[in-house]
Amino acid sequence: SLEEAIRRAEEALRKGQTFEYAGIRVTTQEALEKFRKWAEKQK
């Protein structure tokens, strides 16, 4: 689910890792916010 993907992205960010979902790379807090906004639109 998208909620699960967001949780995994947050977890990866805390560990300093890269999270990738549907071709979207989350490597920074800013990218995480963009990913969250994108995920909201997918619902």
Score class of each variant (00 low, 15 high):
E40Y: 08
T27W: 07
Y21F: 11
E40C: 08
K37M: 13
A9E: 00
V26F: 10
G23I: 02
K15G: 08
R14H: 08
E40H: 07
F19A: 02
Q17D: 11
L32P: 00
Q42T: 07
A22S: 08
A12D: 03
E20L: 06
F19S: 01
R7N: 08
A22R: 10
K41S: 15
T27Y: 07
V26E: 01
R8C: 13
R7Y: 10
I24M: 11
A12E: 04
Q42M: 14
A22P: 02
E30K: 08
F19L: 02
A31W: 06
T28D: 14
F35T: 00
A39G: 04
K43V: 14
T27S: 14
L32Q: 01
T28F: 03
L32A: 01
K43M: 15
A22I: 06
T28K: 02
R36M: 11
Q29Y: 15
R25T: 13
A5M: 14
K43I: 15
R14K: 13
R25L: 15
K41M: 15
V26T: 01
R25K: 14
E30P: 04
T18V: 15
E20Q: 07
S1P: 12
Q17E: 15
Y21M: 05
E10A: 08
E30Y: 07
S1A: 13
E3L: 11
I6W: 05
K41T: 14
T27N: 14
K34G: 09
K34H: 12
R7T: 09
Q42I: 13
R8P: 00
W38G: 00
R36G: 01
L2H: 05
T27R: 07
K15P: 01
K37Q: 14
K43R: 09
G23A: 04
Q29V: 13
K15Q: 13
G23Q: 04
A12M: 08
G16S: 04
E30M: 08
R25W: 12
Q42C: 14
T28A: 04
A39K: 03
F35V: 02
T18G: 09
T28R: 02
K37H: 10
G16F: 05
A31N: 09
Q42V: 13
Q29A: 12
R8H: 10
F19R: 00
E30Q: 10
A31T: 13
G16A: 03
K37P: 00
T28E: 03
E30T: 08
Q29F: 14
A5E: 06
A39S: 04
I6F: 07
Q29T: 10
L2D: 02
E10T: 10
R7P: 03
G23T: 04
Q42D: 05
I6D: 01
G23C: 11
L13T: 03
G16Q: 05
E4W: 12
K34R: 14
E11R: 06
E20R: 04
A39I: 13
K37D: 11
K41Y: 12
W38R: 02
K34I: 13
E33N: 09
G23E: 04
L13V: 13
A9L: 04
A12K: 04
W38M: 03
I6T: 04
S1Y: 14
F35P: 00
R7M: 12
E33S: 07
I6Q: 03
R8T: 07
T18E: 13
E11L: 06
A5Q: 10
T18W: 13
L32F: 10
S1G: 13
K15I: 10
S1T: 13
K41A: 15
S1L: 12
L2I: 11
E10K: 05
A31K: 05
R25M: 14
Q17C: 11
L32D: 00
